[in-house]
Amino acid sequence: MVKIRVNGINYQLDVDPDTPLLWVLTEQLGLTGTKYSCGISECGSCTVHIDGEAELSCGISLGEVAGKDVVTIEGLKGRIADALRQAWIEEDVPQCGYCQSGQIMTAATLLKHNSDPSDDAIDGAMSDVLCRCGSYQGIRQAIHLAAGRKVS
């Protein structure tokens, strides 16, 4: 049995602790907003927050997050999250949308640490999350928009 806290809910799971967190979230808990794409920590689609920081859930096992606080896109809340989602909608960022949970989760920790990031800072923080549709320009604009609103 592994104890884990996801989106504020405590779970006791009878799952092999070596299982990547990604598959625990999607297959055991039905939190399918976190996405599998590479499985080798190369693309960022599976980004979640662990104790408030962005982590790749395909590269971390259930056992490693035991007792920690996990937040997925479904549970992402608060001023930063609201500002990001609103900006994402206004800038019409997603195309296919598959990577966007990873983009938003990563952007949320960026804004937590840097309330007014430059383009370079955005590129630096976001460069590990791949978007094959190329929605990058919208992501930059949406992060700027959200940053401006969150502060005001």
Binding site: T32, G33, Y36, I73, R85, W88, P94, Q100
Partner: peptide, 27 residues
């Protein structure tokens, strides 16, 4: 006109093929 599928692509609720789950489904 804003896209109709944006909101559900920002909160994880948009359902892709990989997200399908059925009773008694095996993978």
């Amino acid at each position: 006109i804003p896209r109709l599928d944006t909101k559900i692509k920002t909160d994880g609720s948009a359902k892709f093929g990989i997200d399908i789950k059925l009773p008694e489904m095996l993978v």
